[in-house]
Design a protein around this nucleic acid. Structure first.
Lengths: 363, 363
DNA sequence: CTGTTAGCGCATTCAG
DNA sequence: CTGAATGCGCTAACAG
């Protein structure tokens, strides 16, 4: 056996007592040594699960504070079965609706002592897929995700293995995942009925891409309401920019059958359409009545205050995350997941033609 | 030596070949075995750093795909020095301003192949401290944080050790941390000057708690502008709820020296004050002119469109995160950190009394 | 109630 | 260019 400076190599590792905790972060065995106990005792004191005699526990606590020891969660996660983290994938964080969802997720996770790894998909199925893989590689204990485009999403059980996943706001094709939604179709239908009650015969639906589940579901509700009233549908998708929207609206308004009321698919579309309406010099609700899907902070202060369908964004995030933690706790992977649908509210302000001084909320 | 069923205990571990990859996730040695190479070769193929002969690399790749092998990032992070994750702490995610900041952070991180662990502090220094500790225990490579209350924050270099930290939107006391801010004081000052140019002599500032750095900094700008114009300051803090704000505004407006213009500290205050103004039946800008700090999506569609100071939220998040990655790459812990101040823009719409048809932006 | 042993999956030595 | 050995910090499983 080779030697260095007369010291047998084999002994080297035992000999150096891993340096006298000079600058290295203190580890559990540092604590153990200082407290004069085994590492397991320290581990037990930390986890608190198993009983340890009061005074050794005290000695350990003292040692921990003295060394300013902090457990290495990475090692713990690596060793154990739980990483105590969940993944969250949403399309964008700059959209207040998604941000609200995310807020609820982080809040629930913190209550459970979990960390949240967050990422945005930009509505791109490939990005979404890659990011989900990354999270899986990080061994998250579960994932909450707002899936991107319905038909193209590659989020499937086979990707996730036995890692629980809850989809929310939009479903995925794979029926084995839990999903939490809101009443998109019913909400849209009801608000269109309201518009019709105001006497409108020509109501238009303006929205983003129909490949987004929610936008399509709301369109379906809109169309249903129109059909039942014996009216003709008139939808424009692809209101993806201010310019596109302005052009689309201009076309509509200059046609023979110009709509007298508009429903938008979500807040972004609302903004684009509002901008277009203003550019065309139209007045709400006298020239066109207006309703939007999704409420937002300032909807009360626009000119005029907007009638909208209000979705329980935070509630949805909370429910989805709670469901995920149930799955994590149970450790089972169901054949078919739950499908929870949350109710929406109609908030009647004045853009629809109502004269209420204050908003009227119908649930 | 004790034996079980005639099998020497010592051999047990060698004997069982860790079960034939039945349901266990494939590991690197599974790949190595299948490819007929050593684990190190697999590791090298994966990291791509060191050169490996083309055909062994190919064999390894095939084995990886065949087994659907995914590296265990947890083990990698645990073993190596980098966790390839950064922490992000912000007050709330439901505030669009913070959400925009967060969006930029996640975007930059993804570009660098990093994960983001996100959490909210609710403006509470204790929560903030605890959450920062958690992230440190998870061995994040760095942190980006919007600190809570300036004087009470416990975020210090000694907590972070040699983990780089960049504060943004608001500074911390510890001068060794980098910080990215916007021109709060200058922005507020300029917009107040604008209000004064409109002929206002009594301008009020209404905001949330002064213990928040930004709210205070903007107040300072406001006061400065008033002083320089020889006018008396008139500020109300603690506009923390709609009710409080309504009461505060009512008091102000019913006094002898009722303000003829108002500046709010941020979007939340803007909403409360707008609500209060509407409740009092006041008109903007004829009864009171109005300006707000912080632009928001719908500011163009309120009645009337709002004049605001626009902050580069996403830019700030980008700069802060880039700075963090610089620090991580350099691996140094500076004595005194950088202090970057980003410019703001004044967006003149109509609430200040301007008659512009379209917003005028002054940078 | 407490200590010892072993090994999670990977990458950093060091030897070929 | 490649492989074997070693240990990161922690905890499950077993002693005692």
């Amino acid at each position: 056996m080779s030697e260095v400076n007369g010291t047998p190599l084999l002994n080297r590792s035992k000999q150096r007592d891993r340096m006298p905790a000079a600058h290295r972060k203190p580890t559990m065995s540092d604590v153990a040594r200082l407290a004069g106990v085994g590492t397991m005792t320290v581990s037990r004191v930390l986890s608190g699960a198993v009983r340890v005699s009061a005074d050794t526990a005290q000695r350990v606590q003292t040692a921990i504070e003295q060394l300013k020891y902090r457990p290495n969660e990475l090692a713990r996660a690596f060793r154990g079965q739980r990483s105590h983290s969940i993944g969250l994938i949403i399309p964008y964080l700059y959209d207040p609706f998604f941000a609200n969802c995310a807020h609820a997720v982080t809040t629930v996770a913190r209550e459970r002592g979990y960390s949240v790894i967050i990422t945005t998909s930009a509505e791109d199925p490939e990005t979404e897929f890659t990011e989900a893989e990354h999270m899986l590689e990080r061994h998250v204990d579960g994932m909450v995700v707002i899936p991107s485009r319905f038909r193209q999403t590659r989020l499937t059980r086979s990707l996730f293995g036995k890692t629980p996943v809850v989809a929310f706001d939009r479903p995925v094709q794979d029926p084995s995942l839990d999903v939490v939604l809101v009443q998109n179709t019913a909400g849209a239908r009801r608000i269109v009925e309201h518009l019709i009650e105001h006497g409108h015969k020509r109501v238009a639906y303006m929205g983003l891409s129909r490949s987004l589940f929610t936008i399509n579901a709301r369109f379906l509700g809109y169309r249903r309401a129109m059909q039942e009233a014996g009216l003709r549908s008139d939808a424009a998708f692809d209101c993806n920019t201010e310019e596109d929207t302005r052009r689309l609206l201009k076309e509509k308004m200059s046609g023979k059958d110009a709509p007298t009321a508009i429903l938008t698919s979500n807040t972004l579309a609302t903004r684009y359409v509002l901008s277009a309406i203003s550019h065309l010099g139209l007045r709400i609700p006298s020239d066109v009545a207006f309703a939007g899907f999704d409420d937002f902070d300032m909807a009360e202060f626009t000119a005029p205050p907007l009638t909208v369908v209000r979705q329980p964004a935070q509630e949805m995030g909370r429910v989805a995350t709670s469901l995920l933690f149930d799955r994590i706790a149970r450790g089972e992977t169901p054949q078919t997941g739950n499908r929870i649908v949350l109710p929406v509210e109609i908030v009647l302000r004045r853009s629809c033609g109502c004269k209420h001084r204050n908003p009227v909320i119908m649930s």
